[in-house]
């Protein structure tokens, strides 16, 4: 029984037919009034802009003159005649494919270690979480640029062992890896989610397994991991979408260029350059819709395949 039910039933019993509007007012108005700010935002800042960016993606638009319809031209150019688009796709997929599984592996590994009943768990958890909280800041990207510079911290340590390291951020073979390491460094928040998931696993399952003589190793593969798959699934989706949207570190570390030779040209960075560097708003809108398609396809694929590997309670 909710607020509105009571209000509407009492209203209908008192007033007959004429009050259809009064009844709507009684029953539906409060909900819609409370949602009013969200409605303005949803239509004005989300749905409306989505429709118009879909339209703009089929136009040439420089912000100053009105958009020119070019049909599928933007999309055709993107997939047939734009080496920078191809480069940004390669960079972004490489980043996602390496950073997400490695980050999750670290998060799960540390969570398992902490869940062994370690003393000082709150302290460790807080320390490992801190980089996750700070990591999105421009300050951290600046720090990273310094750490992996030619005369940076990493090379100082290497020089102790007599190794002369390259300038990691200005070498196209390594520059993307510095960003992947930055992403892995922030494994704290998926780790916390894993820890919460591990606590949900009933302890008597392990006791029963031990009685049956199952080794720790077997218990991990047969109990822990299957029961944790919903959390793995959740973390994988969130982290993948975040990785596709990543922008600030690549922007700061490459000074907004995506260099050396486009090796850190994240998709979002390329989109930014097209939109706000060259004012090719139509083309940038098309890029945005391709990004949405990729994210949607990935999410749909994950959900469709989830029944084969994600364990749900019966």
């Amino acid at each position: 029984m909710t607020v509105q039910h009571v209000a509407s039933t009492s209203a209908t019993s008192e007033v007959p037919k004429t009050s259809v509007w009064a009844r709507i007012w009684q029953q539906d108005a409060p909900g819609y009034l409370f949602l009013l700010p969200w409605f303005i935002g949803f239509f004005g800042l989300t749905l409306g802009p989505m429709i118009s960016s879909l339209y703009l993606s089929f136009t040439k638009f420089d912000l100053l003159t009105s958009p020119d319809w070019v049909g599928a031209g933007n999309y055709v150019r993107m997939f047939t005649n734009d080496p920078k688009f191809a480069a940004s796709m390669r960079v972004t997929f490489f980043f996602v494919i390496f950073s997400v599984p490695l980050k999750l592996a670290f998060a799960l590994g540390v969570a398992l270690l902490l869940n062994r009943g370690m003393k000082g768990l709150p302290l460790y958890r807080a320390l490992f979480y801190l980089p996750s909280l700070l990591g999105a800041s421009v300050a951290i990207a600046i720090l990273w640029r310094q750490i992996f510079a030619g005369d940076g911290l990493v090379n100082k340590f290497l020089s102790v062992f007599g190794i002369v390291g390259p300038s990691w951020i200005s070498n196209p073979n390594y520059s993307l890896w510095t960003l992947i390491i930055l992403a892995i460094w922030q494994f704290g928040s998926p780790m916390i989610i894993f820890l919460a998931g591990l606590r949900q696993i009933p302890q008597d399952m392990y006791e029963a397994a031990s009685l049956d003589g199952a080794s720790k190793w077997r218990q991990f593969w047969k109990i822990t991991l299957p029961l944790l798959t919903p959390v793995v699934f959740f973390n994988a989706i969130i982290q993948t979408i975040e990785a596709f949207k990543s922008f600030t570190p690549a922007f700061i570390i490459s000074g907004g260029t995506g260099n050396p030779i486009n090796s850190t040209l994240f998709y979002t960075l390329y989109l930014y350059q097209e939109a706000f560097g060259f004012f090719r708003m139509g083309y940038a809108s098309a890029l945005a819709w391709v990004l949405l398609a990729i994210v949607a396809a990935f999410t749909a694929f994950s959900f469709l395949t989830s029944k084969y590997w994600v364990h749900y309670d019966d």
Binding site: F42, G44, L45, T46, G48, P49, M50, S52, S53, L56, L63, I241, F244, K245, T268, L271, A275, M281, A284, S285, L287, A288, W289, L291, L292, V295, A296, T299
Partner: peptide, 17 residues
Amino acid sequence: MTLMLPYQVTLIPQYVL
């Protein structure tokens, strides 16, 4: 559903607005 939406999709019309 808007939770999953990459902000880039609404970025340019929002900017114009």
